[in-house]
Design a protein around this nucleic acid. Structure first.
Length: 705
DNA sequence: GCCCAGCCGCTTTTT
DNA sequence: GCGGCTGGGC
């Protein structure tokens, strides 16, 4: 790397970049130039003569991987390093060593809705009821408690010692059996099977260890046990493992991520070098101080500084609104004001805790003719018509995929009804063959009469003619299949709904054409794999100027000039499903807020609504406890011209702590509930006692609803 | 075998 | 408020 480049680095960044051999932990606060460090480090490694082929960088999303690849190209670094997500890396490894991993190399990948179908089937097959064994709960247990912790069916069976565990073990066993018969892996299998492959086959482990002589892992705070074991196995031969992350940005505990992986890195690798990047090049000092006050409320945390390099900038705004409609409208107004002052829409983002919150924002933006995008890549692939198309394509590469087959065997309706399918399945299980094989042998199934036999034969023939060449381009294949399966005709006949669906499938075919264009060697299997592993943020597209709407989780890793965080209320942030008695759960919600705040470069607008419609019901809300931890004055929308003070909360109990804009912290001594004109008496820490009248903006208007 | 109505259950975040 | 599933009618 030339000197000009390395001059762009701070001393601690340099230390991380030029630490070449041996374990390295980079604790990188938000906006501290972490991506720069990783890409420069790759360049520095290659500079010393290490072949790109021997470098493996693992990111959290495909988008991050693409970006990193792009940035190494900008640095004129020779290409060839493996840069991908954990899951993509695992797919590559598993296809290469399929036999040793005990799977077929042409496996396909099940997403969450496929998983749900399978688990329901498994529960049913075990003779159990989904009311007693809710699919979502079972899946969560199998995924996060078992698979992500590398507990396979046999070991769980041997340790199950109560009724629930024993039953769960049966469901787990059946679930895995369904998947393996369909020649499919779910997300967790990708990690688990890879971890087992490396554990049980030292030859594979050392081959891969020698190939990937330098391992870099980003967002290490959000790795789970399986990922941790994979990383450890790959690096065990050479100890050249560099991990980067920020414990304060760990937000995936619910998905099995274990923050201890990063906290205990130095125990795992005793000779590890630790570099802390604390300077923040992104946000104004005001934003950083707000973020710092908030995150300091997490007690289970290593102290870390956020050092601003920018001036204070404008104040962080906290707004209270009557309801989510007013909140959305005010947001739209503020967006207009920002663009009037020269901001572009791509500089503006809106974050929320749950996807359902996007709706009110969307409506306000539409009303005000403000272009926007909802950053939610996976949603597209969950549409019915898209899933139908993908099911057809999946069958071509993996005819064993029974879920895909059952999905389209009668879609569009072609006279192969439930009874016929049941008979086919019975036949298949008697003969111990797959459903697709049964379809091929339809002539010899006695339980079927002539008409269904002919329909099945026609269906199989239609599919078989596509299977001759699957190594070419995907888009032409998809288009032909769309037509010949009858799906296009079906959608064309379906009126207004079908029109939309038709557009979506065309978009899918366009995307496939783009894939064909970009891929070195396009294949259907590879295409399907890419689609299976998309994340929400992968769909984030800045080519058109528009406001970005996304969840706080999706926002991780991004940055915007202006950020709106809406719905900062108890029940949403922290979310109602967080166990507030569990400090770790609550602290993760706080970190999520922290992640959102630290995305903002200069403008930060935090808001909550006093009333919110949730699942069709208008509910009074309570401002989030986190708001009181920001240490900033609340901007109420009520006029304060009558001399009374305002506190942003509704109901008080004696002894409760409050934060007041002018008087600071205090303790409630009395609460006089008089509806709209309630009074709270507070003894402030300054020593003075005040009677404060509570004012609720537009309360009468709302109560009339 | 197909279609539709109505009911039920769920409803946080996502690779 | 929504979408998936079931059961009944054609």
């Amino acid at each position: 790397m030339n000197d000009t480049l390395s001059q762009q680095l701070t001393p601690s960044q340099k230390k991380a970049v030029f630490h070449l051999e041996g374990p390295l932990l980079v604790i990188a606060g938000p906006g501290s130039g972490k991506t720069r460090v990783i890409t420069y480090r790759i360049a520095a490694l290659i500079d010393t003569g290490i072949r790109p082929f021997n470098i493996c960088a693992i990111t959290f999303t495909n988008k991050a991987a693409d970006e990193m690849r792009q940035r190494t190209i900008t640095l004129e670094t020779p290409a060839g390093a493996h840069i991908s997500t954990f899951h993509s890396l695992c797919v590559t490894i598993l296809r290469q060593f399929a036999a040793k991993a005990g799977i077929h190399p042409n496996f396909t990948i099940y997403n969450e809705s496929d998983q749900t179908r399978c688990i329901k089937q498994a529960i049913k097959d075990c003779g159990l009821d989904t009311t007693n064994f809710p699919p979502a709960r079972c899946l969560d247990a199998i995924s996060n408690r078992l698979k992500n912790n590398l507990i396979d069916v046999d070991s769980f069976k041997s340790q199950a010692d109560d009724f629930f565990s024993e039953t769960l073990a049966r469901i787990y066993a059946r679930y895995q059996q369904i998947l393996s018969q369909a020649n499919t892996l779910d997300f967790d299998d990708l990690l688990m099977k890879t971890a087992f492959l490396l554990r049980d086959h030292p030859d594979v482990c050392s081959e891969l260890g020698n190939r990937f002589r330098f391992l870099l892992i980003d967002e290490y705070q959000d790795t789970n046990y399986a990922q941790y074991k994979i990383a450890k196995a790959l690096a065990s031969a050479h100890n050249n493992i560099c991990v980067t992350g920020d414990p304060d940005q760990s937000i995936y505990r619910w998905r099995g991520a274990d923050i201890r992986n990063i906290l205990a890195f130095e125990d795992d690798w005793p000779d590890a070098t630790v570099v802390k990047l604390e300077e923040n090049f992104r946000s104004t000092a005001n934003i950083l101080e707000t973020a710092d006050r908030l995150i300091s409320c997490n007690l289970n945390r290593k102290q870390k500084r956020l050092v601003p390099t920018k001036p204070p900038g404008q104040d962080v705004i906290v707004n209270a609104f009557a309801d989510e409609l007013e909140e959305a409208q005010a947001l739209a107004n503020q967006v207009k004001q920002l663009t009037d002052n020269g901001a572009s829409l791509n500089d503006i983002a809106v974050f929320y805790r749950v996807n359902a919150q996007s709706r009110a924002i969307e409506e306000a933006l539409i009303q005000n003719q403000i272009p926007y995008q909802i950053v939610r890549g996976v949603e597209f692939y969950n549409r019915k018509e898209i899933r139908d198309m993908l099911a057809y394509l999946k069958i071509l590469v993996n005819p064993d995929d029974e879920i895909a087959l059952l999905r389209v065997i009668n879609t569009p309706a072609r006279g192969i009804g439930k009874t016929t399918v049941d008979r086919l399945r019975t036949y298949a299980s008697h003969k111990n063959i797959t459903l697709y094989e049964a379809l091929k042998k339809v002539g010899s199934i006695d339980s079927l009469s002539k008409a269904p036999k002919a329909k099945i034969a026609a269906f199989v023939n239609m599919l078989e003619q596509f299977k001759t060449d699957l190594t070419g381009q995907v888009a032409p294949l998809a288009e032909r299949l769309f037509i010949e399966s009858g799906l296009q005709q079906y959608l064309k006949a379906a009126g207004e709904d079908g029109k939309n669906a038709l557009e979506n499938v065309n978009e899918l075919i366009n995307a496939a054409a783009q894939y064909d264009h970009q891929a070195e060697k396009p294949t259907l299997l590879d295409y399907l794999q890419q689609i299976s592993l998309v994340s929400d943020v992968d769909a984030y597209d800045t080519s058109i100027d528009r406001v970005a709407l996304m969840t706080l989780h999706t926002a991780k890793g991004l940055e915007f000039e202006n950020v709106f965080i809406v719905g900062v209320e108890e029940g949403l942030l922290p979310h109602e499903r967080t166990n507030t008695d569990d400090a770790d759960d609550l602290e993760e919600e706080r970190r999520l807020f922290f992640v959102g705040i630290t995305r903002a470069k200069s403008g930060l607008y935090i808001s909550y609504a006093r009333y919110r419609t949730i699942r069709g019901q208008l509910l009074r809300t309570i401002p989030s406890q986190f708001l009181f931890e920001l240490g900033i004055n609340f901007a109420e929308l009520t006029q304060e011209d009558d001399g009374f003070s305002v506190i942003t909360q509704y109901d008080f109990n004696p002894g409760q702590m409050v934060q007041h804009g002018s008087f600071g912290l205090g303790t409630v001594t009395e609460f006089i509930d008089m509806g709209e004109n309630s009074i709270v008496v507070v003894k402030f820490n300054t020593g003075q006692t005040k009677s404060l009248m509570l004012k609720y903006a537009n309360l009468s208007k709302i109560d009339n609803i």
